[in-house]
Design a protein around this nucleic acid. Structure first.
Lengths: 144, 144
DNA sequence: TATTATAATAGAATCGTTCTAAGTTGAATG
DNA sequence: CATTCAACTTAGAACGATTCTATTATAATA
């Protein structure tokens, strides 16, 4: 807790109870939550919290580089509190998202034609598969 | 034109003028248009076309496997009429999307820990960079 | 502890997308 | 050809995620 508070102390980040709750929820969280996931959790402690607070706080954290937006789900944004570059694997049955910590930069050679057109700055890989839990299930159980 | 009509003849795909216009717009199109891009173009010929028709037709084409949904832009869906597996490169300045026709499957080795958890079925790489046109510009010109 | 810039809140607004209900039409059939 | 009807088109309503607005509250600071 103290570490979290210290991390954000100073330079115009006003620490409020709501923000602290969001930071605590996100710290070490590998579930790639949506704004709604965060909202629902914070509401347990702060029943009057608004979506605006969740979105505003996420936006601030994204600008600080502490949270990354994950564009995988066509329906809504997911957020990843791990700012270290990494990749994702999505279960095509239940839609849960896992992390892949491998640097593929040297493996992802681009053809000359592309390198002529673009000054390439980064890459991100999405893997698709079926997770263990889903393989052990008869019917798909999409996470809503 | 004839080829297009023949391609879709039979098995319950009713060819309408609007659908033909959408198919013509999409054929060989590498611009990764949004529903709105398609709508605006079709409206030039069919001013009363509705978004529902665009979305319905895209959905039908996606189900047939002739069009792929591209989940790169957090704000809206883009569509790719090239169903062959390939990757994308996004200009972080103007947001335009290019194609990368390289099969990286053998280069994208997953760690044992992931392979234990997932039956992996596919992958997709997003590259990021600045396109030539944007490098020749002083200020960013985001495509809206 | 007074000040003030920043944040929280409720609710309205917006945007992309999906749904609905009614009217229309392509194409299969006689 | 004319008939039939499932499939399509349409306008507009509905929806869900996100953003905005106006007001009130509060953390940080001096």
């Amino acid at each position: 807790m103290r570490e979290l508070i210290d991390k954000y102390k100073g330079q115009g980040f006003k620490m409020t109870p709501q923000r602290l709750a969001i930071l605590k929820y996100l710290e070490g969280n590998t579930s790639h939550p949506t704004a709604e996931d965060i909202y629902k959790d914070i509401r347990k402690t702060y029943p009057t919290v608004s979506f605006a607070t969740v979105y505003n706080t996420i936006e601030t954290l994204c600008k600080r580089g502490d949270v990354m937006e994950v564009t995988i789900d066509p329906g809504r944004k997911h957020f990843d509190p791990n700012p270290a570059p990494h990749h994702h694997i999505i279960c095509t049955s239940c839609n849960t998202i896992g992390d892949v910590f491998v640097d593929y930069s040297s493996a992802l050679n681009l053809p000359e034609s592309i390198r002529r057109e673009y000054a390439v700055s980064g890459n991100h890989v999405d893997f698709y598969g079926i997770c263990k839990a889903c393989r052990g299930r008869k019917h798909d159980l999409k996470k809503t």
